Computed example of a mutant assay.
Amino acid sequence: MTFLSARPALARAPSFSAREFRDALGMFATGVTIVSARSATGDLIGLTASSFNSVSLSPPLVVWSLSRSASSMAVLADGSHYAINVLAADQKALAERFATRGVDRWAGVEHTPGIAGAPLIAGTVASFECFNRSRYEEGDHVVFIGEVERCQHDASRSPLLYHGGRFYTEHPL
């Protein structure tokens, strides 16, 4: 007996609200990153993102996404490189600042230039310097695939975590 049927042409309409979906997504604990780049005019761009993950080891690929309406979309979509800075547990204030609109996100932030000038933030647990390999428009976001050209990590530091709308630190079981 087979239960396979023809693949439907479209998904069913959701049976839940946008708030319910967001709350359910919040149950997946993630690390916290700041995606950074330098615009063609030299301006520093940065934003907090928790939508980061690995895709492939060979070639080394990572994925993250950004709202289509983000003010930094043009710089990130058109630029050749960006960096993904994985924040340490003591960098919660940076995560909050880079998620806030209308503030000078880079004021007093220690960083060094990476490939194509993408800022590498000091004190992170890891950083990935990425070639902007491809982008896919899906729903209200753009999915970015980055080909990692350089990476580093500091295993002596604990990462900043995000779960259920709150920040956490790592506690081994």
Rank of each mutant, 00 (worst) to 15 (best):
T2N: 12
F3K: 07
L4Q: 14
L4A: 14
S5D: 13
R7W: 12
A9R: 09
A9C: 03
A11N: 09
R12V: 05
A13M: 05
R19Q: 12
F21N: 05
R22Y: 07
R22M: 05
D23K: 12
D23M: 10
L25I: 10
M27S: 12
T33R: 00
T33V: 09
T33H: 04
I34C: 00
V35F: 03
A37L: 05
A37N: 04
G42S: 10
D43R: 10
D43C: 02
L44E: 06
G46P: 02
G46A: 08
S50E: 11
S51H: 09
S51W: 08
F52G: 03
F52Q: 05
N53A: 14
V55A: 00
V55Y: 00
S56T: 09
L57E: 01
L57M: 11
S58T: 12
S58P: 00
P60S: 12
L61H: 02
L61K: 01
L61T: 01
L61I: 07
V62N: 03
V62S: 05
S65A: 13
S65T: 08
L66P: 09
L66F: 08
R68L: 14
R68M: 10
S69V: 13
A70D: 10
M73K: 12
V75N: 11
L76C: 04
A77C: 06
D78I: 00
G79E: 00
S80R: 13
H81N: 09
N85Q: 04
N85A: 06
V86L: 13
A88I: 03
A89V: 11
A93G: 07
E96G: 07
A99H: 13
A99M: 12
A99Q: 13
V103Y: 02
R105K: 15
R105T: 04
R105W: 05
W106V: 03
V109R: 11
E110W: 02
T112W: 08
P113R: 07
P113W: 06
I115Q: 03
G117L: 04
A118T: 03
P119W: 02
I121Y: 01
T124L: 07
T124R: 07
V125I: 14
A126K: 02
S127R: 12
F128I: 10
C130Q: 00
F131H: 06
N132S: 08
N132E: 02
N132Y: 01
R133D: 10
S134W: 02
S134L: 09
Y136F: 15
Y136A: 14
E138Y: 13
E138S: 13
E138G: 11
E138A: 15
E138N: 08
E138V: 14
G139K: 08
G139V: 10
G139T: 08
D140I: 06
F144P: 04
I145H: 03
V148I: 14
E149D: 04
R150W: 06
C151I: 15
C151W: 15
H153S: 12
A155E: 12
A155R: 02
A155Q: 06
R157T: 10
S158A: 15
P159K: 07
L160P: 01
Y162F: 15
H163E: 06
H163S: 11
G164Y: 03
G164R: 14
R166Q: 15
F167P: 14
Y168D: 12
E170S: 14
E170H: 15
P172V: 13
